[in-house]
């Protein structure tokens, strides 16, 4: 039990250390004393710029993105009672990034800085709502995942169409950024516009988490013990949609962290979906901060996209988890 209690504090400490390391490392490694001075607003002015305008916001953006995907993944898994449910797999991220790309393509983002996060959130909500509707109709989780794959494929095709029609190479590269997912060059300003969505969505998920434990018994028995199934579905879909939308607005579509983090966390929290939310968020945040450090220090010609690295690690994990599942669960 003690090891389980220590999970959340340990993850929190690890996250803080990882963000600090992200400030140390980069194209020009900076010694600890200079980073500390810069963090507390003294020391060399150029150091302060590197830390406060480049490295720290980027690390925090990676953390916020991961945290949003981790908590959404854990909550969707609880709702759908399946460890393979996740914003990326269910097409929620793809749909969000399609809406975001759409708003970029038509120049809507020039209207207000809120357009991008709101478009991403609407895209995420559209996909989550569709999946929740399908969940009411079908009891088979395999069908749900297939619906998600369909949404993903459709969003991908629509995105390709937009790229096909892209007027300039510049818009094209912008779109590729959204499809692949990256936190390069993020500032506190962008973080500020995504944060209300990520925090708001997470708050909804945390407030309604008890119902996710009830759903362990299946929908029928969960209703029997007093769960309002309809409200639970709405709250989880809304929370996951808003949080995922916020993460996509910040970093584009990044897949699979939402599967990997809850999967690792679950045995430590007694396989209880409610208790897996916060540790999953922290672990997913940690994973993305570390992956982004990797992306930055790997000596590649073009910087790798964070979403590509996440998928390279996450997709095999997805296959591994899927193959390890026992048939009795469906």
């Amino acid at each position: 039990m003690t090891a389980n209690r220590a999970l959340t504090p340990a993850l929190l400490v690890a996250c803080i250390i990882a963000v600090f390391i992200a400030c140390l490392l980069g194209s020009t490694p900076m010694p600890i004393d200079r980073v500390l001075l810069a963090l507390f607003g003294s020391g060399d002015v150029s150091d302060q710029i590197v830390i406060w305008q480049i490295r720290l916001p980027r690390a925090l953006a990676a953390f916020a993105t991961g945290a949003a995907l981790g908590i959404s993944g854990a909550a969707l898994q609880g709702l759908l009672r399946n460890p393979l449910a996740e914003p990326g797999v269910l097409g929620v991220s793809a749909s969000a990034s399609l809406f975001a790309t759409f708003s970029l393509y038509y120049g809507l983002v020039a209207l207000s800085p809120w357009v991008l996060p709101i478009a991403a959130m609407l895209g995420a909500l559209a996909a989550t709502a569709l999946i929740a509707l399908a969940a009411i109709k079908t009891r088979s989780v395999v069908t749900l995942i297939l619906v998600g794959v369909g949404i993903s494929a459709f969003a991908g095709a629509a995105m390709s169409l937009l790229m096909n029609l892209a007027p300039t190479p510049f818009t094209l590269s912008d779109m590729i950024n959204w499809m692949l997912g990256s936190v390069a060059n993020r500032s506190f300003r962008e973080l500020g516009f995504a944060a209300p969505f990520i925090l708001g969505g997470s708050a909804i998920l945390l407030a309604s988490r008890r119902g996710l434990s009830a759903l362990t018994l299946g929908e029928e028995a969960a209703s029997g013990i007093g769960l309002n199934l309809r409200n639970q579905r709405i709250l989880t879909v809304l929370g996951a949609g808003i949080a995922t939308g916020g993460s996509v607005a910040l970093a584009g579509a990044i897949g699979f962290v939402g599967i990997v983090a809850p999967h690792i966390v679950r045995p430590f929290v007694g396989h209880d979906p409610a208790r897996s939310l916060i540790p999953s968020a922290l672990l997913a945040g940690l994973i993305l901060v570390l992956a982004d450090i990797g992306v930055r220090i790997l000596p590649t010609v073009n910087e790798l996209k964070l979403g590509v690295v996440a998928a390279l690690i996450g997709a095999p994990a997805f296959i591994w988890i899927a193959m390890g599942r026992r048939a009795i669960h469906d």
């Binding site: 362990t216 018994l217 029928e220 028995a221 396989h271």
Partner: peptide, 10 residues
Amino acid sequence: YLPQQRPLAW
């Protein structure tokens, strides 16, 4: 209430 189907997800 104990329903006929009693799945345990986790």
